[in-house]
């Protein structure tokens, strides 16, 4: 099952649960480390929804920034440059190896807008 199909399945369940039939938009939040390329998911979403009652609904994507806990002193921080996620020195002690990833791996549906 692709990510887009899983997404459609959950959207359909939630719509049935709330007794709504027309989907306006879905908001997906994805961690900056989770490699779902927004463009690819958008494309797949259109492919799996066309000719279904969900066709035409908007897929909004929001990136969750990476949040780390320093492996050495325990300080929690967000690296500023998100294009270079590796070897990020801790702002407090300078350690750049082995930080724990607190946020940035998630991939979830935040909410739907429907009628």
């Amino acid at each position: 099952m692709s990510i887009a199909q899983s997404l459609v399945g959950i959207v359909q369940q939630e719509m049935a649960k709330h007794g709504v039939t027309r989907l306006v938009s879905v908001l997906v939040r994805h961690g900056a480390l989770a490699a779902v390329v927004p463009h690819a998911l958008e494309f797949a979403w259109q492919a799996v929804t066309q000719d279904t009652p969900l066709a035409g609904a908007r897929l909004d994507m929001e990136e969750v920034p990476v949040r780390l806990r320093c492996s050495s002193c325990g300080k929690e921080f967000s690296p500023e440059e998100c294009d270079r996620l590796m070897l990020i020195p801790c702002p407090s002690c300078g350690e750049d190896l082995g930080h724990e990833v607190l946020e940035g791996k998630e991939l979830y549906i935040e909410n739907l807008e429907a009628e």
């Binding site: 990510i3 939630e14 991939l107 979830y108 549906i109 807008e113 429907a114």
Partner: peptide
Amino acid sequence: MQIPVVRNILEAND
């Protein structure tokens, strides 16, 4: 209306 969901997209796989 807005429906809060907060569900992992990969929950079926997981």
